[in-house]
Amino acid sequence: MDTTLTYNVPMQETFGVWIAVYFYLTGLSAGSFILSTLRYVFGFEQFKPLAKPGVVLAALLLVLAPLALLIHSGQPMRAWHLFIFINPTSPLSWGSFLLTIYPIISIIYGYFMFKENKKWARIMGIIGIPSAIAVHGYTGFVLSVAKARALWATPIMPLLFLVSAIISGIAMMMIVNVIQGYFFTNDRKINTDLLFTLGRMLIWIIVFDLFLVFCDIVAHYTGHKEGIEVVKHMFTGTFGFLFLFAEVFVGKIIPMIVFAVPRWRKVSLYLIMAIIIMIGIFIMRYNVVVGGEHIPIV
């Protein structure tokens, strides 16, 4: 029977844009940390120029990220409650410790790196990689545990977040590489080999990310009623534009094609694409956080 709704009350905003900003910053931090370990842990010498800016940005962004949480919180002066009253079933409770441990590890790792102590830099890097994965993976769990929203409550969410974190981290490192070459070398020569290598890496990571998004959408669309509502919501209206056009088409497919064509290997084009990817990943965070809670549940 057809029923028309005639009265209901509006819902308050829960996780707003500040949580999206927070997820974005931790993602950038984790991504740049993992890139900086490519030389000191995995031994790829061609990534040496990225190691130092990578670790500095990783620590810096993770000091900034909790500020977004404090702005979001209704009672920021009670933030110390998080360290006193611990709830082991809550991902936010795990996060309060991860957010303290991870910057400390990355600062120690950076210290050994700047001292050129390769052995200890490697050890701290090995400790740092799982903590970088944890500090961003837990943000995926924050959404995945909130079972109210069908878009969030998928087991794929932490993985989706990690992959997009690495994408945004690589894109940021491309920009860092251009800035480093243009402003911080005597001959103003940009390390194009490194830039194009990062581009080639991005192609396959974006392919993997698109595959994960595709899996998520297909599983929702063939799933229960709420999942179908999610897909309709993400394909039509404001979030249809933001998701299909801004996030997937402009933010992922166009850069992927540009990086895949050998003739288009130009520094300016790669720089523009890196900026587009960074904006695209922010739109992805916004779509997931704000789009997820935009779907009415009552």
Partner: peptide, 12 residues
């Protein structure tokens, strides 16, 4: 004790 993080609102 509540810190106003609104996680409960998001999860309910």
């Amino acid at each position: 004790r509540c810190i106003g993080c609104r996680y409960c609102m998001a999860a309910c």
